[in-house]
Design a protein around this nucleic acid. Structure first.
Lengths: 192, 192
DNA sequence: TTTATTCTCGCACAGCTGTGCTACTATCTC
DNA sequence: GAGATAGTAGCACAGCTGTGCGAGAATAAA
């Protein structure tokens, strides 16, 4: 045999390097050479682990979903589970901000690139599941509420990434106001 | 003098060609050559009107805002002005769907490209103005409601573009449900 | 018709892209 | 030690990119 590479560490390094490139320079700049440089590897060495450019892109994207799932699963089931779960979907800190940019860049890239559509569909389905559970946590089983939660959370996410005046604090406040309104509505028995 | 080019028609043709390219193949595919081909021009001829690649991109994007403004201004001030104004912001028909893709692609491209940030800021400011007017139309002057309307509308837009299961009809229904809730809340005097 | 000007178009160039191929090195097993 | 093999690294190539440049065609004014 020969020397053994720590595949997990390599995977993490490449994923995080590609995230940084996407967040800093956009999806267009995600080239074999740029990722290799960011991960401090020779392009050919990167290509040993990731033979094609699209394998890098696909891994960068599926890793966002993995991270998100890990965070949501790790969430304590306390009195604020619902808010906290939704906040995990939103760019309320630096790391999540990077992930959100990657995530939104994927959403748009998948419009034109069929190879990315499966992972996009999986991720959207998972986010919807979270919204579904939050709706249940709020005491509602309305599909309309799930749609509304999902759209609102994604809208806030987009705005934090894209509008300078929208900070994490702004998004958190907007989310709390909205959730209070939903709670009132449910308490009033308007929907179930 | 010499033969005269219809600059307006040329501008329209190039703008629409670039929209088609972006919607079909993504922002990455917006090259001098691809736009020229889509507009049925020799690349060098395109470059007579648009000397650089970024001038094409910037024009494609500012044109989205122009179109949007024209549509909103043209809206009759009848009993459904508010809903209709918000629907103008959303991809509820084929043309608006294309524009929404271009618009969202811009939002993400501007994260990395400083040249695009001014037009993005202008467009977001305009959309917020529309949301503000709709809030007033609903009988509220709450900034929180404006934020909520804006985030919700953009969230629905994103979902129609990005989630297969989200049709224009779905978005329109979700918007109406949401607006009914807002109206009830305002009628109850919860906020002003 | 002549002339000036606007527009069209092709060619060339440097720099980037993904990727195939090959040589080399370091380390694990025997 | 010897040898096999996992991993590194460099080079080359075709194809794409934006863009500079110059030559030509078409048309308006003289």
């Amino acid at each position: 045999m020969a020397r053994q590479l720590d595949h997990e560490a390599r995977d993490r390094a490449v994923v995080e390097a590609s995230w940084r490139v996407i967040a800093r320079e956009g999806m267009t700049a995600l080239t074999v050479r740029s990722v290799a440089k960011e991960a401090d590897l020779a392009p050919s060495s990167l290509r040993y682990s990731f033979p094609t450019q699209s394998s890098v892109r696909e891994r960068a994207i599926s890793a966002v979903l993995e991270r998100l799932q890990e965070r949501v699963v790790a969430l304590p089931e306390d009195a604020h589970w619902g808010e906290n779960a939704l906040l995990e979907l939103m760019p309320v800190d630096g790391e999540k901000h990077t992930e959100a940019i990657v995530w939104l860049a994927l959403e748009m890239a998948a419009v034109a690139d069929v190879d990315l559509q499966p992972v996009r569909a999986r991720a959207n389905a998972y986010i919807r599941t979270v919204c579904h559970d939050v709706a249940a946590w709020l005491g509602s089983s309305s599909e309309d509420l799930v749609d509304q939660l999902h759209a609102f959370v994604d809208g806030l996410t987009l705005h934090v990434v894209v509008r300078d005046e929208c900070t994490p604090q702004w998004a958190e406040r907007a989310l709390r106001i909205y959730l209070d309104e939903v709670r009132e509505r449910i308490a009033a028995g308007v929907q179930n």
